[in-house]
Write a protein that binds this DNA or RNA. Structure first.
Lengths: 104, 104
DNA sequence: TCAATATTTCGATAAATCTAGAAATATAGG
DNA sequence: CCTATATTTCTAGATTTATCGAAATATTGA
């Protein structure tokens, strides 16, 4: 993942509503959740939520699958992992080993 | 680190200029770099850079120490580690062990 | 004190973002 | 076909952000 894509993805997660949505989806698991379920759980107006979901999908944080009448949103775990990887590799250089960046 | 602080910090890193600055500072190491050095290295106009640095300092991504005439900017490694920790703990739940989230 | 250096503050503009109601679209079921 | 459900698109206002030149503010050294 290149610099610009990382910045764009972090910017998407850097909004309180969108971060809530992402956290919710992650907890929902690999089956994700429908737009309506997210809306009910988080209490975000439909049009606002739709806007945020579209943004998240655009940068690859989630994907959306149409299933009959509902649209299911699924978190792209790998995308997040790539982001975390970038932050560790590109932004943690210089930290002495064993200080605070040990594998969990 | 709570939800709102995480969102605020990610939003700061979610800007191309600021991400560049942070990466530069991380590579500069624990001694950081002066505002002027950053400016020269990245070619960002002084007032623009000052604005970005102030924002980054406000959320705790960097700290600024005055040293005679120059102001030295130092990356807050721990803050980034906390961010990464949050993303792993709060946003990677549900990923089966051994899939892609193994300790590096 | 004066000039040079380092950085910020001011001010102003352009662009992007957030928000949400209302209307539109799509689809399933009766 | 009609209605209910699910979601998006449209529209528009409010807020925030990004940008950067010019002026202001230290601070050092001569």
């Amino acid at each position: 993942m290149d610099h610009e894509k990382v910045a764009a993805s972090l910017a998407e997660l850097g909004n309180s509503h969108r971060l809530s949505v992402f956290r919710f989806l992650v907890k929902a698991g690999h089956d994700g959740a429908s737009v309506g379920e997210i809306q009910k759980a988080l209490g975000i107006p439909a049009s606002t939520l739709s806007h945020h979901l579209a943004r998240m999908a655009k940068v690859g944080l989630i994907r959306q699958e149409k299933h009959t009448r509902t649209i299911v949103c699924i978190p792209e775990y790998e995308h997040l992992e790539n982001l975390i990887g970038f932050l560790r590799e590109e932004c943690c250089v210089g930290v002495q080993a064993g200080h605070a960046l040990e594998p969990l």
